[in-house]
Every structure is written in C-alpha cells, then in structure tokens.
Design a protein around this nucleic acid. Sequence first.
DNA 1: CGGCGGCTTGATCGGTCTCAAGTACGGTGG
DNA 2: CCACCGTACTTGAGACCGATCAAGCCGCCG
Lengths: 237, 237
Amino acid sequence: MLAVTPIRSVDPRRLAPTVRSIPQATSRAFDGAEHSSLAQSMPLMGATMAYPRNAEIYGENEAAEYLYKVVSGAVRTYKILSDGRRQIGGFHLPGDIFGLEFADEHTLSAEALSDTKVLVIKRSSLEALAARDAAIAHELFALTGRELRRVQERILLLVKTAQERVASFLLEMAARVAGANAIELPMSRQDIADYLGLTIETVSRTLTALEASAAIDVPTSRRIVLRNRGALNRMIG
Amino acid sequence: MLAVTPIRSVDPRRLAPTVRSIPQATSRAFDGAEHSSLAQSMPLMGATMAYPRNAEIYGENEAAEYLYKVVSGAVRTYKILSDGRRQIGGFHLPGDIFGLEFADEHTLSAEALSDTKVLVIKRSSLEALAARDAAIAHELFALTGRELRRVQERILLLVKTAQERVASFLLEMAARVAGANAIELPMSRQDIADYLGLTIETVSRTLTALEASAAIDVPTSRRIVLRNRGALNRMIG
DNA sequence: CGGCGGCTTGATCGGTCTCAAGTACGGTGG
DNA sequence: CCACCGTACTTGAGACCGATCAAGCCGCCG
C-alpha cells in the first residue's frame, strides 16, 4: 500500500525573516580584481547597490532584468518548495556573478546573507554589448558553462551521506574564500542545511563529529578551522 | 565519535557490461524534425553512427571532440563515483543533443541504452559555424541554458522522497516521449535507480506501490501506463 | 528443460529526520 | 555591570524511510 509521506510543516521561525528594504544606490564602483573584458565592462555599465542582511535582492518570478556581481558581503539564492522547505541554489561570494537567467523571469530568489554590496548591470545593455563584442559573448558562454559544471557537481553531492556532504561543503568554502585553513562562514547552519539537503540538526551533529575526529576545529559557530584536509578529502571519496 | 561510513562495494553484475565496439558509420542522414538553423546545419556537417546496446559512445576524460544528436534509440550519460556507485547524468531520447562540454574533456561517459543511431558533429566545425552565424551561436547558448535548467530541476528532485522522485521521473518521461499515457521505458530499473539516487529495490517497490494505489499500471516491467496523472502530480508537490 | 539476467518481494539494519530540551551568545535596558 | 531576552546552535531520544542482505519469480533463449 502506498502511504503518502506526511510532510511536517516548517517552523517559520527557523527561516530568517526577509527584510524588504529599499536598497541604497551608492556610487559607481571600480572593480579591479580581474582583467577580462567582462570584468572591465561591468563596473562601467552598472551601479553599486547596498543591501542589508536578509534583504531580498530579487524574487522568484520577478523579471530577470539585471545581472549581479557581488562586491562585498555574500548572497544566497533559493527556492521555496511547495511543501514549505527551502532549497538553496548557491552561495555567492565577492567576485561571483549571479542572477544570470535564460528565461524572462528569475527561477530563484536572492537575498543578502550579510550586509552586501552588489554591482547591478542591466541585462539589455549587457546583451547589446555581447552582440557587438565577441569576447564578452564568449565570456558569458563560459560563465554559463562553469555554472553548469557547478550544478552537476552538486548533483553528485546530493546522493552522498551527510558526512560527505558536509566535508565537501567545507572544502568548497575553503577553496573559495582562500583564507588558508580558517573559514569565516557567512551563512547560518540553516542555510548550510538547506544547501546540502539536510536538516540543521544533522549539519550540527556532523560538524561536532568532525571536530571530535580532529578533522576540524569550530572555535565559534561561524568559524571553522580545517585541521586535517587529508581526512576531509578521504571522506568525500 | 565519528565513524566513517563503510561503503559496500557494488556488485559488478548489477551494472550492464560495457560493450566496446567499433561503431559503423552509415550515410549522412537528413534530420527533418526541426526548423532551426542548428537542426538544419547538423545533418550537413556530420555522419550518422550506429551503436549497439550498451556500447560506449564516449568515455569520461576522453577529448570532447564531437557533439551528438540522437536519431533513434536512447543514450545514458553517467559517471562512476569513487565508491563504485554509478550516477546517471541524464537520458537522451531521439532529437536530444548531448556531449556538449565546456572543457577539453568529457566529464561524463555516454552509452547506448539500446541499439542507437546518433548524428555526430565535429565540435570544431560547429564552433567555426557559430563564429560566422550568430543564430547558431545563440542557439548553442540557449541549449546550454536549457541544460542548466534541467540540471537545476534535478537538484530539487534529489532532496525529495523516493515516491516523489519516481513520480517525477515518470511524468518527465511521459512528457518527453509524448506517447499519450503509455511509456515504453528504454532503460532498466538499475538505470532509473542510478538516475534518481535510489537503489533498484526502492524503485521497484515504489512502482509496485504506485500500481497498488492505481496511479499507474505496469503491464510489463519496461512498460508503464499512467492511470492517474492527478495523483502523480499531487505526489511531486 | 535449464540457466541466466532483470525484476520483485521479504526481513532487518542503520542513517537521517523529527520532536524536544538544553546551552551559548549578542544585544538591550535597567 | 548584570539581568533579561531572543536567536542560533547543540544535544538527546525515538521513529521512520530507504539501504542492505537474501530469496524468490519471471521471461527469454539456447
């Protein structure tokens, strides 16, 4: 017999409240980190906007009129499933581009994880630019390809055990923030859980277990020190 | 304490043996299904190749020199994980394009699910064509975008229950083969399991349960009749 | 008829979820 | 400076879903 799984309703208090705010446009910013045509063009085309912690940058189903690049802070993109759970699509750190869509509307929502500044570029101007400049067009294509790879990696992650997912997550974050072996996580345990397809309790327990096995140190809840990368790498297979 | 999960080794008999064969090049084929520039150009640029059931079309880490389009039959792309499990990246049915990569090498392997004919296009010629023809370039971009969407959908699938995954899979296949309510599955239970991140037993049991609940009929193991789409849709949320 | 591969079914195990407290931390006001 | 609060996180106990291990069944082909 087929018993439809009862799905517990999500305690709304577990999700950080969305702050609806009017972001302040600040001045045009120069982003000097990279040397590609795209990185050079973007600051010239858009404005920097500031969003406070938990502010919505765009919502699912809104017109995808802009492309975004994180200047400082961090961003999560996510989708609320019909059963109330939240699936996080990705975390975006300084330098990352997000909001690239292939339809008229965003398929995910985006929120600032902390006080965040993003560079906002009108999609139409970027498309016009890409039409004239093959290098830009190629870069957008490559960007999409990288995004596709990243999402394919996630699929491999989601069929693994909790420990493998958490270990992978830590190594991924360590690689991205590039801060030696100490990571300052910009996101909550709930965010991590919703990213990895686990519950907050499982994430917490797994971190505790990793700490007990001397693979990591967790001096404060948002700070993770990788003590034994070899052990972590062995866990992810 | 952290106990590293012991992973059972996969019974190799569970995986269909890969047939290494020399595919036969047949004649150039005309593919008249679509009216896009890409669909029109492809048959003119490539040759049709035939692969017997379970033959490898390309392997992971091989140079990604060609792009493929299924003419008849069906194809699975997959990756063998370090623990021996197999994750299927996707199933490709007639009309589908696969093998599009953004690096020099394939990240997945591809095999024929049944005797299959594919149109093979040299990547370099396609790129040359795209450089000259903006419509082709745009189509490749759109193709990538669609692929990205598809993979993002998979992520949402993989965090759901077994029943939701199987129901989604059936509805997806029904939509793709477009054959009313009866689906002739080109893949085995093991393929489905590896696609959905479940075991073969769970897939089998779930299908039995769906049949018991009158949502589907399974006259033969490869044939599924959707009896109650509403029920299936309700399951996927 | 025998054997084999693919599939189904049964029994048990174990990892993650669920439900429920308990603890640490940062901010606010007295 | 401390008392209080709310939020985030951790920890514990038990339930449940899907994995695992192990037979059976079925269709097909020699």
